[in-house]
Nucleic acid binder design. Structure first.
Lengths: 120, 120
DNA sequence: AGCAAGATTAAGTTGACACTTATGTAAGCA
DNA sequence: TGCTTACATAAGTGTCAACTTAATCTTGCT
């Protein structure tokens, strides 16, 4: 999921993914769509997308046909839905944050003798 | 939207955003949560998040309180829903892709006829 | 005024990454 | 077998971004 998010941060890769969203396409056809970039660049982008499981590759003779893997995008979407509000993780984080604050407060207190801290 | 995606590609920023998801937090408290990274690093991340409209900043005395801007995340989610299937853009892209393919085919054809040159 | 706390900005380093050209590899065909 | 097409990988380069430490700015307090 981390890889998918990172892969989609690149506009060019989003464009590629959209190109192969509704129908599979050979690498050449994809590259032809981007005249301002070399063919290997597209190949590398496709490799990243494949590594993030955002596209699948199928071989047919000398050609390689790419197609979007919609499931991964769906997963990414539900990740964005859940990540921030996921109960357990949020509780754990809150606890850790509180602990870190206390640790910090104690450290300051012990070290600096003249230091004062504000009330809540 | 582009900025938001790019901002969230960084795991640390996702963690920060989750920290301030349900309640605002002063920068120090946020930084204390990440012991392995310096305070300025967190400040810079916060700046990026603010630039992407993913958090809002409120000042209170010397402190700066941050809070997640959930609307932007919601927009990002619907962007992920629509981008690939958006009718007009998809049609436009398909047309351009077809055109590029034809251009390419013509070029190949000409070359095969004996003319050894590409592009205009 | 002068000092301390909270936080950002400045400046510099490093690693990742999007690109380039050049080279390699696999499949189809004369 | 050798050529051509379709594509990937290798190697190198420039840019950007995440981090560091040091310096600055702002506010509150006495």
């Amino acid at each position: 999921m981390d890889a998918a998010l990172k892969a989609l941060a690149e506009p060019r890769r989003r464009a590629i993914l959209r190109l192969v969203w509704s129908h599979e396409l050979p690498a050449t056809d994809i590259a032809d769509r981007f005249r301002d970039v070399s063919r290997p660049a597209i190949s590398q982008h496709l490799s990243v997308l494949k590594g993030a499981n955002l596209v699948t590759e199928r071989r047919d003779g000398t050609r390689r046909l790419y197609r979007a893997n919609r499931d991964t995008v769906a997963e990414l979407r539900s990740f964005l839905d859940d990540y921030w509000t996921s109960g357990l993780e949020r509780l754990r984080d809150a606890a850790e944050a509180a602990e870190a604050r206390q640790r910090q407060r104690r450290a300051r207190h012990a070290r600096g003798r003249g230091t004062r801290r504000k009330g809540t």
